[in-house]
Design a protein around this nucleic acid. Structure first.
Length: 300
DNA sequence: TAAGATAAGAGGGACAT
DNA sequence: ATGTCAGTCTTATCTTA
């Protein structure tokens, strides 16, 4: 894996045509004097930002990401015992290099916090896929989890539950409609554990969560049940009116949205059962009925 | 068969002790 | 820290149209 690619350009320090790219770390350096020209080349093409400036070429590495345990910025000490020109190292050099590697790995991945982070972020990516969430949500989740680690809140709790709660918190913060139930069942963490950790995170990090918008819930349920635009719009009107009367607080947004859709479907004569809506929204039929009682007076 | 009613039980927030 | 209380939601079962 450590093949070293010849590079045609000149070294800016010694002027020799001896530049090499390290296959492992991606660094470009001079094979004669060891001067490092550029680090972390992701591809050799130029990254054109302005269409009219053909002259300016920029080379960048991967963008940094909070979902990488080292933010994607670590450097690697090449594990192959060859020098820059490909010759084997002397034995004294070999032993001091191996000491350096040991120190390096201790300082980077082997302390417990970092190990924890690495594992958690691995799980985060899997969860993100399962719940089909966007990058921005998982970035936010990673940010929250780093804070959680800083505050040492994971002590005595499962990493999976904590990272799942961070993800749920990120959903709430970005107003991405995912219920506690959905998250807990797809990830195999009990609802109790998940909500406990979630509350802890919100409290300790002093997060201000936006009240989850029942209108976005309407959009979600409406699309899974394939209801007409007309019905959805009607349901939104019902909720808007109910909001003015302040009877919405403390009620589950999903339940409210489902009930509003049910009432709206009665008006538009688009027949949908409570059962279907209950399944799509993740609340029970009984809850829908109870919410209906409150919302009924808002049908004109 | 869908919808409504009722009861028992769980879990969490507010508040007092 | 622990207990109580009102309010919410769920599950289960029965009735009604």
């Amino acid at each position: 894996m450590s093949q070293q690619l010849q590079n045609k350009e000149k070294c800016p320090r010694c002027g020799k045509h001896n530049l090499v790219t390290d296959g492992v770390s991606g660094e470009i350096f001079c094979g004669k004097c060891g001067f490092v020209i550029d680090e972390k080349i992701s591809d050799n093409g130029s990254e054109r930002i302005f269409s009219d400036s053909a002259v300016s070429k920029s080379r960048t590495g991967d963008r940094t990401s909070l979902t990488r345990h080292d933010n994607g910025l670590s450097s690697i000490i090449n594990p192959i015992n060859k020098d820059a020109s490909g010759k084997p190292l002397s034995s004294s050099m070999k032993s001091s290099l191996s000491q350096l590697r040991k120190l390096d790995s201790r300082s980077t991945t082997h302390n417990s916090t970092d190990k924890n982070l690495k594992q958690a972020l691995g799980e985060l990516l899997k969860m993100k896929e399962k719940l089909s969430l966007s990058d921005s949500v998982s970035e936010k989740a990673a940010y929250i989890y780093r804070k959680v680690l800083e505050r040492k809140l994971v002590r005595g709790r499962s990493i999976t539950a904590m990272i799942a709660s961070s993800l749920y918190a990120a959903c709430r913060e970005t107003e991405t409609p995912r219920t506690l139930k959905e998250v807990s069942s797809t990830i195999n963490v009990t609802k109790k554990e998940l909500s406990g950790c979630y509350r802890l995170i919100v409290k300790e990090l002093d997060l201000r969560m936006p009240i989850i918008n029942s209108v976005s819930c309407i959009a979600k349920i409406g699309s899974t049940t394939k209801l007409s635009e007309k019905t959805k719009r009607y349901a939104m009107n019902i909720l808007k009116q109910a909001e003015k009367e302040r009877i919405l607080s403390g009620k589950e947004p999903m339940g409210l949205a489902a009930s509003a859709l049910y009432l709206a479907s009665l008006v538009t004569e688009e027949h949908i059962t409570q059962k279907t809506l209950a399944e799509a929204s993740g609340v029970t039929e009984v809850t829908i009925r109870n919410r209906c009682k409150n919302l009924k007076k808002f049908i004109d």
